[in-house]
Design a protein around this nucleic acid. Structure first.
Lengths: 149, 149
DNA sequence: GGCGATTGAATCGTGCGCGATATAAATTGC
DNA sequence: GCAATTTATATCGCGCACGATTCAATCGCC
């Protein structure tokens, strides 16, 4: 049976997946702000460093593909990482349109301090590795379906 | 057995729940940008309207408690909703520190157009209601654990 | 009644995200 | 070989988020 406010329920804030995602991301951001304070990184800067720690020397758009960010976001962010002496930005010789991002020694060595962060975050979320992996995979699945729209 | 790069795996971008959350939220935001274009609302503005459609006449901090946002974010956002003639902002008589936010007739009537959005978003995410509810609850649980840290 | 503490909103500064546009380099087509 | 198109990055403008601070109103306490 259809009640008059079935559509009301659909518009209820707490019933919506999108708000669960939004507010949890806000909380996660807050958590990482604290964890990253002593590394002097913002959360998107940390993600960028993760990408470079996995593979050094990438172009702006290669980094962007992995983070789902474009140059309008990355260029200023990378300039700040450069100002912090964690990376260098240099035009490619082969293709002058591209800018190669490379870690400095300081950038590489920051990785040691960063190693503690995933575990600290896991503790804060009070997730077992299995729970975390399951939720992660569900989110990646959702993102993929959203991306292909 | 411990391999030398166990910690490397922990720092891998795609292995991290936080990045799954981050990138899925970016994708969700992009989806809503499209859906909300004809309502002339941003996504945080839409969430604010959801709060007010559920209960009219709330103070800035009451809205903030539901959205997990503070006045530094809400005040300018609410001023934009006021400029769009969707809400009014008025100092409370009883307590002059508070500002009461109320829907205008235009704000109330926008709800009719918004009714279509949750369903459209559900289709885009290609989730069954059950999947969506399960993921939503898992996220709310995580957020709660993150908040109480 | 008066005064220090608290509360609610606003303001300021910084750093994302991203649509739109610009610019320069490389590639394609003829 | 050169004009037209495409590609990679940068720039601009706007709207969040949020830490830090300010300011006025209210509360608590004597």
């Amino acid at each position: 049976m259809m009640t008059p406010d079935d559509t009301d329920d659909a518009l209820a804030l707490e019933s919506q997946l999108c708000f669960a995602l939004y507010s949890t991301q806000l909380a996660m951001n807050k958590l990482y702000r604290g964890l990253l304070r002593e590394l002097d990184l913002t959360y998107p800067q940390y993600l960028t460093m993760l990408v470079l720690w996995q593979r050094d020397r990438q172009t702006v758009s290669e980094i962007g593909e992995q983070l789902y960010l474009d140059s309008a976001t990355l260029t200023p962010l990378l300039k700040r990482l450069e100002a912090a002496a964690l990376i260098t930005r240099q035009r490619s010789r082969q293709d002058e349109r591209q800018v190669e991002i490379a870690l400095t020694e300081k950038g590489r060595s920051l990785r040691e301090q960063a190693k503690a962060i995933p575990h600290a975050a896991g503790c804060a979320g009070q997730c077992t590795p299995e729970e975390a992996a399951e939720l992660r995979d569900a989110l990646h699945g959702l993102r993929q379906r959203l991306d292909t729209q």
